[in-house]
Design a protein around this nucleic acid. Structure first.
Length: 270
DNA sequence: TGAATTGTTATCGT
DNA sequence: AACGATAACAATTC
């Protein structure tokens, strides 16, 4: 469930303890997690120093000092932890990185959906990712180009990582609510002002979520407080914070979807 | 027990 | 044929 704001928070949180460190050992107990293979990942990263830790879409990107890259995707339940905490023993440890300062980074993932990818060509590895919604390339004109010329439902389009990289279920619902757009509206039937509103909404929602360190959910991701400020996600039956109408839960593209039937009218579409 | 979750891939329909 | 929607999938928790 970590989406762009949660991944960004994790990157910022781990950056100070990873950048400049050398990886002295790597182990993975979950072969299907690593691409091209556990062996290839180990060969690529052991002995290398981490020069930078960045984010692309929902990927965490380790930049290595020989030009290689390690991409980590948390998918639903992946998370990083340090082995040195004397709290409870971490569960579902799938991979470990030993660093030259004695610390050990853990990748924990109860559902085993998370992925590690070693590559020497970052551009090729991320070629299928769309625009960074908080980057300079994400303009109203760019969004309009993505929306126009196709007749897709807004929600699946926004969830499509090859269109915009980083939005997941929570922030898609939140963005559509802020823009006053129903998730089933067709992408090519928006007016100019509505496209601009959607652009503003996506950036506003993501920035705000980063400011509050993301949305905490059932132990997969903790540490954020955005869950207190969500307008529609997870609020089915509760009154809309704008108009008081009960939030409705519907099913769009096999995803639980939350809408305010008044603020996000369909305008007779469909 | 069924529902929920992400993102990819295969398949179905128009 | 091309496009878009839908289903299946991997694996687990509650």
């Amino acid at each position: 469930m970590p989406e762009l704001p949660e991944v960004e928070t994790i990157v910022r949180r781990y950056r100070p303890r990873l950048e400049g460190r050398r990886i002295v050992a790597f182990a993975s107990r979950w072969a299907k997690q690593a691409a091209p293979s556990v062996r290839a990942v180990r060969a690529g990263i052991v002995g290398r120093a981490v020069t930078r830790l960045t984010r692309r879409g929902k990927y965490i990107v380790f930049h290595l000092d020989d030009g290689g890259f390690l991409l980590v995707h948390l998918r639903m339940s992946g998370r990083f932890e340090w082995a040195d905490g004397q709290h409870t023993r971490p569960r579902h440890v799938r991979s470990t990185w030993d660093l030259d300062d004695g610390n050990r980074l853990l990748f924990c993932d109860s559902r085993k959906f998370g992925r590690l990818v070693y590559t020497r060509d970052l551009a090729a590895a991320t070629a299928d990712l769309g625009v960074e919604p908080l980057g300079r390339g994400f303009t109203v004109a760019r969004l309009n180009r993505e929306l126009d010329g196709r007749a897709r439902q807004l929600k699946p389009l926004l969830l499509d990582q090859s269109v915009i990289a980083g939005l997941g279920n929570i922030y898609t619902d939140e963005s559509l609510f802020r823009a006053g757009l129903h998730p089933l509206r067709r992408s090519n039937r928006l007016g100019e002002a509505q496209v601009a509103a959607l652009h503003e909404a996506i950036r506003h929602v993501l920035r705000k979520a980063i400011r509050y360190c993301g949305t905490s959910f059932d132990r997969a991701y903790l540490g954020g407080s955005m869950q207190k400020r969500l307008m529609v996600y997870g609020r089915a039956g509760e009154p809309c914070r704008v108009c008081g109408t009960p939030i409705v839960s519907i099913r769009v593209a096999q995803r639980g979807t939350h809408v305010c039937p008044k603020c996000q009218a369909l305008d007779g579409e469909l």
